[in-house]
Design a protein around this nucleic acid. Structure first.
Length: 502
RNA sequence: GCCCCCAUCGUCUAGUGGCCCAGGACGCGGCCCUCUCAAGGCCGAAACACGAGUUCGAACCUCGUUGGGGGCACCA
């Protein structure tokens, strides 16, 4: 058992600009776990201050993804809460207010430099191999002058007045103290000329106003962390605990996943987008288990975790700061593991949509019977169709020559199948043992290995060379269907024999 | 180029100075089980990036090197 923290207030604060991927899912998950473990609150905050990049579908997908994973938030744009609104686009005035406070405190200043001048400046600095930073031209302006120009309607932004001397030490929970020279920190823009705040200001203000105690966010924020600390301290606020989570790398471990690579991945039946995973036959339980373990571990052996396990066992202390390569093979393993842990009725229910999607008419009653014999054979839920589609197909399509048994001639095989037909027609199909015993002794009488006989029958009954256990399958299928299929197979095999002798 | 972070099997990781000639998992190879395929069981190959130091003792501490990653927008 881990040492419990007092109730935390944590948040997941995505910006709806693209698809929700595994990395976001993990950040949300860790926040969620911490909240549930400590009896605190998990908030969802939509960071949509950049209307140029806003993608309406993105927010919908985000919500669906989180819901699918089972991460419910206690406060958020849809459910409300005492510290709303939870959508930054509805908080524009709040940020502006706080930005002005910083100006009054001489911690920020108005800047009238045009984007063109800034671009030129940057270019020059790059050319001279200097760090690319604002040169502080407007920093010298008196507040009086600046205010006058603002009143005259001159386009302007508000920049943070980063100290030019000394250094700042910040503390990341995983990495300890990080000290940075102030002169390497830019005078970042806090408020754009259109009046919208940038992340650096908005997020700090919101975290403060929403009483956030722990910030678990992506480590891509690590480089601006010192700036964030400066902003918080400029206001004189208490800092939340910052935890910067490692990034996810592509399977090769060489950098982040690109758009192109994501598309390629889908060809192989994988995706880094949470919303795709359901259709690909993955369980949310498996996704949660898998991503939880990328950057966090419990001990030196336990790997199977349910959400409840994670809530109990998650701990900030076992987080790993180094980047992790995404390993889809391991994902498959976890999916199989969680499929095998499903109750039969549950498995049947989850597998059903995949049959339906394949255009098969399924009966729930039969699905319940099938579930146990396919359960340990599935990697993804959609494998069920390939494995057990024959239960629901009217007609089986297969290459007739497959009906020839291993190391047998077509004629021999035909003879064997004829014997099977005769035997089977005399049997009662309620007990699996009856059929199995009979078939095995038939094989023995004919001087065949059980595998040879079963192989022929397997094709006849399922149309597949790989199937769930044959006898069980036949019992579920029922005598009538089995006999019908054997007779069809008999006819097909007879043709093969004829052709080969002709 | 500048700033920051990271560094244990191919991959995810355990390890917080002696329990480690380094443990688990995936994957890989072999064997067992077996009506096919799986699942399961057993066995095996496989790592402390490198170099200095500190220490009686270093995967663990310090410094450097190298490698990798992230950031350098009126994006988040």
């Amino acid at each position: 058992m881990v040492d419990r923290l007092p109730p935390v207030r944590v948040r997941f604060a995505p910006s709806p600009t693209g698809r929700t991927h595994l990395g976001s899912g993990r950040t949300a998950l860790y926040n969620y776990l911490l909240a549930r473990q400590t009896g605190g609150q998990f908030l969802l905050r939509i960071e949509d201050t950049d209307q140029k990049r806003y993608v309406p579908e993105a927010e919908q997908e985000l919500i669906e993804s989180l819901n699918w994973l089972g991460l419910q938030w206690d406060e958020g744009p849809d459910v409300g809460g005492p510290y709303g609104p939870y959508r930054q686009s509805e908080r524009k005035e709040i940020y502006l207010e706080y930005a002005k406070q910083l100006v009054e405190k001489d911690k920020a200043y108005y800047c009238f430099c045009t984007p063109e001048r800034l671009a030129r400046l940057r270019e020059q600095q790059m050319h001279n191999k200097q760090p690319t930073m604002y040169d502080g031209l407007c920093r010298q302006l008196t507040l009086e002058d600046a205010l006058r120009r603002v009143r005259q309607g001159e386009p302007h932004v508000i920049r943070f007045k980063t100290p030019k001397e000394g250094s700042i030490t910040v503390r990341d929970y995983l990495r300890g103290e990080i000290t940075v020279e102030n002169r390497t920190i830019d005078d970042y823009i806090l408020v754009k000329s259109d009046g919208w705040a940038l992340y650096h200001l908005a997020a700090m203000v919101d975290d403060q106003l929403m009483r956030i105690t722990h910030v678990l966010r992506s480590s891509e924020w690590l480089s601006t962390f010192p700036l964030h600390a400066h902003i918080i301290r400029a206001f004189g606020w208490q800092e939340p605990l910052f935890v910067h989570l490692s990034v996810f790398l592509k399977p090769s471990g060489k950098g982040k996943m690109s758009k192109r690579e994501s598309a390629q991945l889908l060809q192989d039946g994988y995706s880094i987008f949470i919303k795709d995973l359901e259709q690909l036959g993955y369980l949310p339980e498996a996704v949660v288990n898998w991503i939880a373990l990328m950057g966090w571990s419990y001990d030196d052996k336990t790997e199977f975790f349910t959400m409840q396990d994670l809530i109990e066992k998650f701990s900030l202390d076992h987080l790993n700061p180094s980047p992790a390569a995404i390993n889809f093979t391991k994902f498959d393993h976890f999916n199989g593991l969680h499929i095998r842990h499903l109750a039969i009725e549950d498995l049947a229910k989850r597998v059903k949509p995949f049959f339906v999607k394949a255009g098969l008419k399924v009966e729930d009653q039969k699905l319940i019977q099938i579930a146990p014999i396919i359960q340990e054979r599935l990697v993804t839920l959609d494998d069920a169709v390939e494995m057990a589609g024959f239960f629901f197909r009217e007609e089986l399509e297969y290459e007739p020559s497959l009906l020839i048994g291993k190391n047998m001639s077509a004629t021999q095989s035909l003879k064997a199948l004829q014997e099977c037909e005769r035997l089977l027609s005399s049997l009662d199909f309620t007990e699996k043992e009856t059929i199995e015993t009979a078939l095995r002794s038939l094989a023995e009488h004919m001087g065949l290995k059980a595998g040879q006989l079963f192989g022929i029958l397997r094709i006849a009954v399922t149309g597949q060379s790989v199937s769930p256990p044959l006898i069980e399958s036949m019992v579920i299928l029922g005598k009538a269907t089995v006999m019908e299929r054997v007779q069809i197979a008999l006819k097909r095999l007879a043709e093969v024999v004829q052709e080969s002798s002709a």
